[in-house]
């Protein structure tokens, strides 16, 4: 790309520096000190006393839950979402953007309304049962299955959209060539189509993984408050104005995730599949 366009990124760099860097620095200060709304500057003390929080069993379990659920959700979204994106690509329907809008349309309704309605029909006595007479989900409200279902079907549209964007560009001639060269359709898919769409999968995975990891509303509602994610703890801390703890957890997550992304780019030889 023309180097002249570099200048277009300048405003965004300023924007990110001001709105991301400074708050992160502030969060670091807050998590390493006793700074809060009622402490004046003169009483400010640096301390690592908040770090006990990190070894609290609930924090560790919440971390584990977040990472576990986010990973599984990403994987299931990838399998199902790729399938749907591929079908959209193959479909004879001309206006692909209509199909894409159709896929993401549910997300335009409020997340809480959607999640509560899911929780509603997952419980023992619910509105669907009162119409059709039986429970389609059984009584899974409050279990990990309910949470996983909610997470997958809430965030999957992100995966579909990103994968489709990548698939869209693949030249049909390439696929035909592969078939002409004697590859079976399945092999053609693995050898030709999938590698070319991998960038979309990575983007989609980031878009599914990150909000799942940091989210709190879906696990809270669908587990009936019994499965705690790290997002739930951060939210609690901030609401009860314990900014020190909240900031500490937020910073730890940030470092953890950004670190792992950075590590991935290091291992990625060609360096272009990821960022």
């Amino acid at each position: 790309m023309n180097k002249e366009f570099k200048v277009l990124s300048r405003p965004y760099m300023v924007w990110l520096s001001v709105l991301v860097f400074i708050p992160i620095l502030a969060m670091l200060v807050i998590s390493f000190s006793n700074l809060n709304s009622s402490v004046s500057m003169s009483e400010l003390v640096l301390s690592v006393s908040h770090f006990n929080l990190l070894w609290e069993s609930s924090t560790l379990i919440a971390f584990r839950n977040s990472i576990l659920f986010a990973t599984i959700t990403t994987f299931i979204s990838f399998v199902l979402g790729y399938f749907i994106a591929y079908e959209i690509k193959l479909s004879k329907f001309k206006n692909k953007f209509i199909l894409l809008t159709f896929v993401i349309l549910p997300m335009w309704s409020n997340l809480i309304l959607r999640t509560e309605s899911l929780a509603n029909i997952m419980s023992e006595n619910n509105i669907l049962k009162s119409i059709i007479g039986f429970n389609i989900f059984g009584n899974i409200s409050g279990t990990w299955i309910a949470v996983l279902f909610g997470l997958v079907f809430t965030y999957m549209p992100f995966m579909i959209l990103s994968v489709y964007t990548a698939l869209e560009k693949i030249d049909f001639a390439l696929e035909e060539a592969a078939l002409d060269l004697g590859l079976r359709p399945i092999k053609k898919f693995w050898k030709v189509v999938f590698p070319l769409s991998f960038k979309g999968v990575v983007t989609g995975s980031i878009m599914v993984f990150l909000p799942t990891l940091a989210g709190f509303a879906i696990p809270k509602i669908l587990s009936r408050g019994q499965i705690v994610f790290i997002g739930n703890i951060i939210e609690q801390k901030f609401i009860y104005t314990n900014y020190n703890h909240g900031a500490l957890l937020a910073v730890v997550i940030l470092i953890f995730i950004l670190g792992s992304i950075l590590l991935l780019t290091k291992f990625d030889k060609e360096g272009e599949t990821l960022l």
């Binding site: 878009m207 939210e235 960022l275």
Partner: peptide
């Protein structure tokens, strides 16, 4: 990487 921060960070933060 920085661009990911707004997506990643807990909303409340």
């Amino acid at each position: 990487l920085l661009n990911n921060v707004p997506i990643l960070n807990a909303d409340i933060v």
